[in-house]
Design a protein around this nucleic acid. Sequence first.
DNA 1: AGATTTTATTAGATATATTTAAACAAAAAT
DNA 2: ATTTTTGTTTAAATATATCTAATAAAATCT
Lengths: 301, 301
Amino acid sequence: MIYAISDLEQLSGIRSHTIRVWEQRYNALCPTRSQGNTRLYDDKQLRRLLNIVSLNKSGLKISKLCRLSDEAIDKLLDQQFSYPADDEQADYYVSQLIRHGLAFDEYAFNHLIDQGIDQLGLSDCYRKIMYPLLVRLGLMWRKDDICPAHEHFLSNIIRQKIFTHINNLPSTRHSGKSWLLFLPEDEDHDIGLLFASYMLRMHHHQVIFLGSKVPLDSIKRIFSTLNVGHVLLFMIKSRLAAEAQKYIDQLSEICSSTKIHLAGNSQVIGKLNRIDHINWIKTLDEFEKIIHYPVLHERNF
Amino acid sequence: MIYAISDLEQLSGIRSHTIRVWEQRYNALCPTRSQGNTRLYDDKQLRRLLNIVSLNKSGLKISKLCRLSDEAIDKLLDQQFSYPADDEQADYYVSQLIRHGLAFDEYAFNHLIDQGIDQLGLSDCYRKIMYPLLVRLGLMWRKDDICPAHEHFLSNIIRQKIFTHINNLPSTRHSGKSWLLFLPEDEDHDIGLLFASYMLRMHHHQVIFLGSKVPLDSIKRIFSTLNVGHVLLFMIKSRLAAEAQKYIDQLSEICSSTKIHLAGNSQVIGKLNRIDHINWIKTLDEFEKIIHYPVLHERNF
DNA sequence: AGATTTTATTAGATATATTTAAACAAAAAT
DNA sequence: ATTTTTGTTTAAATATATCTAATAAAATCT
């Protein structure tokens, strides 16, 4: 895949001017060039930029980061994410599952993840195994230890598990207000949203699950006909603060009489203005509380 | 959503030159313009273009089509797709399911689709109900009768059903060569691929399901480590013949020693050159035959 | 075969995106 | 308080995409 500098801007949330200045001052990235001198980036460079941005946000100086080799950056990433294993068993599961995933050994992966679900229940299995697994996969992609095919393979099996458990929940007719779940058009990873759907259904809430890539226009259109009580969406990708703000402002206008719950990238959400009326979900526990006592979290008009 | 003329080119497979000429001669589309005169299209115009292209391919003259009003085009589309109902029962299912879907009535939708699966089995239910339902949804989107949210809502429930049935198949360890299933990076609709995965698994084939948006690079990378016997992919979107050709040529090179099965948009696939070594799957029945007698379809070296 | 329709190619003009380089402003560190 | 680091703004030049318009080529129809 080939990226223009404007693509990197979208994907990293760093302005193209800044990307150029980092290159000029510190040789942050070394893009190839087109016939007439336009910068062209590949996946490796994209990963490097995302890593630099991520490490920078955790306090390291940009001038130092940019001068580092890819290997040195990998090392820093390892340090960052090497929390002491507070749950050895879960850690073992994650390692083994990844091992099976890298070999595309669905039989072994399936067997192990089913065992985890049996043992912990889907809810705790997601918290302790699946979610950490996905985080680790993301990290491994950034370190170029796996390719997208691995990530697709694994996340589709996890998707399969959650879908199956949703399907096995007793189907009931609801009368109350429903939860509308979706991701913005530029977001891809719907597993978190799918798990939220499972949790809500577990606690007898009505859910309308739309998944990823829903245009805002479409949300607007259905909002006139539907009795929606809560909106839940994720913003996971890094993006320009201005774009995130614009999106949230538009959404707020559409859903002016509905409680909006927002989860995802704290770097992005933290910078948003005028979101007093939006409930920023920072942890899974917080989300569980809302599910259990939704009334406490209703908006006061 | 706002599209540039190059986006329309990608999405419709019609060169931008031609789009302009159609506008100039027949007023095919009436884009708004930017400050400095660049054409800007919206979803409605995109749908109109896709409808014109589709009707053109079925024999109608471009000069006549372009002059028609949106309503007249809708009428032609209706005629095109109004086959006499050869299966009244299935037709009833589809209508009712769409009715429930438009109301986001998951309970009713679920109840009815489960009934269909019980009655026909998943395989026949897909052929007679789910697939026709998805086709009709696509048509309704093109006529602006539904918005993407409806399509997302319905297809996620169908996805849930197929995933559940895959999950409930007995898990077995395979030793033979496996089927690698994926969609190109610009393809979204993975339900057909998911159903193919179900069919293959039903007949005890080993499947590696990667789903949508897999970069070709990634396929290349895993191909060196894996024992893949068959590759199956869909090309559903309209696209420029040259781009499709380029993609297939690259894929052929990567999978030079593997049987490639290709399904999807016959307008696109039909125009490809040098695909003697690729098995073009034109119908579901053809696919079933391959599943039952894979040896007959092996490549001879 | 000849006429008609449709698509592709060309060319010069204009719009938009990117490039370089320097100066500036804000934030962080000393 | 001063220096260093960092990100933004400005400017003019160049590259790329799009625009119009006319012509050539190909496909289709009669």
